[in-house]
Design a protein around this nucleic acid. Structure first.
Lengths: 279, 279
DNA sequence: GCTTCTTATCGCGATCTGATGTTATGTTAT
DNA sequence: ATAACATAACATCAGATCGCGATAAGAAGC
């Protein structure tokens, strides 16, 4: 029972330089993310393999796998699991691993500066938007519309914030509401601001992995006066399946300070209004 | 500093026979409910009065009052608080005090028996509906639509349940979403069942305190095939401001076993289909 | 300006929840 | 039928959170 991998975990976490930052994620969540990566890499693994690889009990492995299956990242069969088409992995695990905490909060601070009391803002289901929620508390009164459950939960606690929940079909993968019902709810609104993020950004366009998400984001773009795209530099080299919109559809594209200067220039050359958020 | 009212609380809670059942409510929540009742009764009281009356520190009193103000039950002014128009108190505190746990869960069990895998059900923002949520887990697959945040939170965890969140304007008083946006979201649906509750039931009609709530409930009534009203016997002697709908609009009215026989008969005499849920 | 009330911050203690392993009881394949 | 695997049902432990008060700093009224 590989006693070297058990508890007494006082080490400051594996860290694994080169990989995304996994700190400040709950232990099981981190392990699940790592398991997911492991499964995607190996295509198909047995539960016992995972027991050995991660030094936890079978029971725990199964619990993790159940959770990952619930999120649609893997499929279970008797004896093990297989990876699902990568898109889900991308948008889920990437989201969980790739915290980029510092960048996100820099973007959020920059965004916050645009908002003034009395305004209405719309937020999408992104961690960047979530970071912004924490900063809204004292820009009151304020109206906030979002389809992101964690954001909704946080906002219910705030006084002087009119919360407009955008309902729809719940997606465990994103922990948000989507689909047609959500798009319709969005159509019925018009807010001063939209703050959103996407999974990938090319010099000319914003991209996203999933079609249903694109549906909602497009609706959001139509329903806000000033549209702000929050981009941490990790997004800039990546690519994704569906083209969401040209960057010129956004009034502002905010990038973090770590973004290479040439990439910023490339965005500007293509007509985007880019602002750099200091860390 | 009245040391007799402090901690060491091994007593099985004051109980206060004659008053609604306040057990299984968190301590602060219970105290807040009692404070609310106290304020409503006295119309206007000072913070210090409450310190003495409840044997807690000023700080705690203020925290409680802040929470109650957030819920719209009281209004603070320098030195104390005043009660707000009773309707809010009714629908909020009554909801918190009057748990009637046993009855609710009896109603829920009865309701659950009507549901079969594959169906779609709509739930309103009532504690009765919440009790039902706990029983849905193994009637899968299932589609559930609700505007009640606690229900939504619970349902996000369930696999094989398609959750359709009904968005709208968040109400701290009810911990649910409402208003026009919500009503519109409801209009767009059509479910097999609606399970709902109201604040008061006369022999012929269902009533509710608040207009906006009525708006949503009416929409729900229009959007379900089979409408079920869950009524614990406490509701039957009470009255409320707005008439929601005649009882004959419901396909079934479920009451708990403790309901006096003559009241059940009265409902039936007026044309309602009444079923009694065994405890 | 002084008093009274309110809010912010910290710390302690009790409580709760979450995470995990173990044992026991199904299930499925061979 | 039997072995391998999966789930269910406790028990335990640790960490996080909550509830609360005390003190201190900050408004608001007189």
């Amino acid at each position: 029972m590989s006693s070297d991998t058990v508890d007494g975990d006082t080490r400051p976490a594996p860290a694994d330089p080169g990989r995304p930052d996994t700190a400040e994620l709950s232990r099981p969540a981190r392990r699940q993310a790592e398991i997911a990566a492991y499964v995607v890499e190996h295509g198909s693994v047995s539960a016992n393999d995972l027991v050995e690889a991660f030094g936890v009990s079978v029971m725990t492995v199964h619990r993790d796998l159940d959770e990952l299956e619930r999120q649609g990242v893997v499929r279970k069969y008797r004896g093990g699991v297989t990876a699902q088409p990568t898109s889900v992995f991308e948008s889920n695990v990437a989201y969980r691993l790739n915290t980029a905490q510092a960048e996100k909060s820099a973007l959020a601070r920059h965004a916050r500066a645009m908002i003034e009391p009395g305004m209405s803002v719309m937020l999408d289901d992104s961690t960047s938007a979530l970071a912004l929620v924490d900063l809204l508390e004292d820009i009151t009164p304020l109206t906030v519309a979002t389809n992101f459950l964690p954001a909704i939960s946080k906002l219910t606690g705030l006084r002087d914030v009119t919360l407009l929940a955008l309902g729809g079909i719940y997606s465990a993968t994103h922990d948000s509401f989507g689909g047609m019902p959500c798009a319709e709810a969005v159509e019925a609104l018009h807010t001063d601001f939209l703050f959103c993020s996407v999974s990938a950004v090319s010099p000319t366009h914003a991209f996203h992995q999933e079609e249903e998400i694109v549906l909602v984001k497009r609706a959001m773009l139509r329903s806000a006066r000033t549209k702000v795209l929050l981009v941490d530099h990790g997004k800039l080299q990546r690519t994704a399946l569906h083209r969401l919109a040209p960057l010129t559809d956004f009034d502002v594209v905010v990038v973090d300070e770590k973004t290479p200067a040439d990439l910023v220039q490339a965005l500007r050359d293509n007509g985007a209004t880019v602002e750099v958020a200091p860390l």
